[in-house]
């Protein structure tokens, strides 16, 4: 057994959190102002052409299932694998 008291980096954790907080507050001044995004070329293309190319009024739905369908396939597989592992963990055993 490793002694837990000896390897408790409490000060190190607190100092790293404070450094991360200061760094992220400096990022606020570098980012674009709220409500005025700069690089919107791809989104404008989607909004302009999604109705004609996919026939769906909902642009989010056309991105999820058509333009980026591979992401949705991976996500459905993740949900399937999670349900399978939960039923492996919590399912009752057969008394054979």
């Amino acid at each position: 057994m490793v002694d837990n008291k000896k390897y408790n980096f409490r000060k190190f954790k607190i100092i790293s959190l404070i450094i991360l907080f200061i760094y992220l507050t400096f990022v606020i001044f570098l980012i674009h102002p709220f409500g005025e995004p700069k690089a919107t070329k791809m989104d404008d293309y989607f909004i302009k052409n999604a109705q004609r190319q996919t026939g769906s009024n909902n642009v989010v739905s056309s991105i999820v299932f058509d333009y980026r369908g591979l992401d949705t396939l991976g996500e459905a597989s993740v949900l399937f694998i999670a349900v399978m592992s939960i039923s492996l963990i919590l399912g009752e055993k057969k008394n054979t």
Partner: peptide, 12 residues
Amino acid sequence: SGGVIPLMNLSV
């Protein structure tokens, strides 16, 4: 309308 999107919505 929508092509294959409603069918995929139903299966998902």
